[in-house]
Amino acid sequence: MLKCIAIDDEPLALTLISTYVARIPALQMLQIFENAVAGAEFLRNNEVDLLFVDINMPDITGIDLVRSLANKPMVIFTTAYKNFAYEGFELEAIDYLLKPIDFNRFAKAVDKAVEYHGYKYNAGTPGHNQSIYVYSEYRIVKITVGEVEYLESMEDYVKIHLADGKVILTLMPMKKLLEKLPAGKFRRIHRSYAVAVEKVKSIQGRKAFLKDISLPISDSHADFVKGWAK
């Protein structure tokens, strides 16, 4: 069960969120706050797993409130405006809900939080890396490891190419993303590319052939060829 609080200067919004939380067994509402400063103080002195917070509040914005926290819980932003999505992305928000909030949309956001919490809680245990989570398009995205074919580095970003042709763009260095993936299952073959080893169908010269694409193997990563052939 995730312990949560809600902060919003609109009483009706707090009532709606409290009603929705009561309908989801995975959540326990600890307290609600109309005053952002009081809510921030509670967060600094209590263990909270999930924070629902409005962005536009008179005393302090939800963005600034979250930035001020040394130990941040998972965050779901709520707002009537769309123009704060990038700030939510910067703060690694679980999701971003536009008012008026529909229950089904609320429940989907909570499902992401529950899954992400389980992922973090079980980190280091066998099998925990069957899925990874990255931030893309202003929200957290779950990726099944077995669906990843290769990674393409684009300076500060990485394109994650999936088996169904879908591409997910995330703001993360290649090195950090590889650390999230199961050790030995993915190998760098070039400054710009890393592949899922089992997705490589053949190697010819300095090229690795996957299902629908061939990728270059650089001189500095030529040892991949010997390792793959074993």
Score class of each variant (00 low, 15 high):
K72D: 07
K108M: 02
I101E: 00
Y81A: 03
D102R: 05
S68K: 13
S68F: 09
A93W: 09
K99P: 00
Y86T: 12
P100A: 10
Y81V: 00
K108H: 01
K72E: 11
G62R: 05
E87D: 15
Y86F: 14
F103W: 02
F106E: 01
A85L: 07
I101Y: 01
S68W: 07
L69A: 10
R67V: 03
S68H: 07
I94P: 02
F84N: 15
R67T: 02
A70Q: 14
Y86S: 06
G88W: 00
I94D: 01
I101Q: 01
L69E: 13
L91M: 10
I101F: 00
I76F: 03
L65K: 12
K99V: 03
L97W: 11
L69N: 12
K99R: 14
L98S: 07
P100S: 12
K72M: 05
I76R: 08
F103R: 07
L69T: 11
A70P: 00
F77R: 09
L91S: 06
V75Q: 09
D102E: 13
R105M: 10
R67C: 07
P73R: 08
A80I: 05
L69H: 10
K99H: 08
I76P: 04
K82I: 02
K99Q: 11
N104C: 04
L98F: 08
K99L: 05
K99T: 02
P73W: 05
V75Y: 01
Y96P: 01
I63V: 15
L98R: 12
N83L: 04
I101A: 03
T79F: 06
A85N: 08
K72T: 07
L97R: 05
Y81E: 10
T78M: 13
S68G: 07
F77G: 03
L91E: 06
Y86R: 15
F89Q: 10
A85Q: 12
Y96A: 02
K108C: 03
E90H: 02
F89R: 01
V75L: 08
R105H: 11
K82D: 15
F77I: 03
D95V: 04
L65V: 06
L98A: 06
F84E: 08
G88V: 02
L91Y: 05
V66I: 13
T78R: 00
G88M: 07
V66Y: 11
L69R: 14
A70H: 12
R105P: 00
K72V: 03
A93C: 13
G62Y: 11
T79G: 08
I76V: 14
M74E: 08
I94R: 10
A70K: 15
S68N: 08
D64P: 00
K108N: 12
E92W: 02
D95N: 09
D64K: 15
V75S: 05
N83E: 15
E92R: 15
K108A: 10
T78V: 15
S68L: 05
N104T: 12
D64W: 08
D95E: 06
I94N: 02
G62C: 10
I101S: 02
M74K: 12
A80W: 08
I94W: 01
Y86P: 00
L69P: 06
K108T: 10
L91T: 04
I76Y: 02
Y81M: 06
K82E: 14
A80G: 13
P73T: 09
I101D: 01
F89E: 05
T78W: 03
I94T: 11
F103Q: 06
F103Y: 14
I94Q: 03
Y81I: 03
V75A: 03
A85F: 04
E87S: 14
F106C: 03
A85W: 02
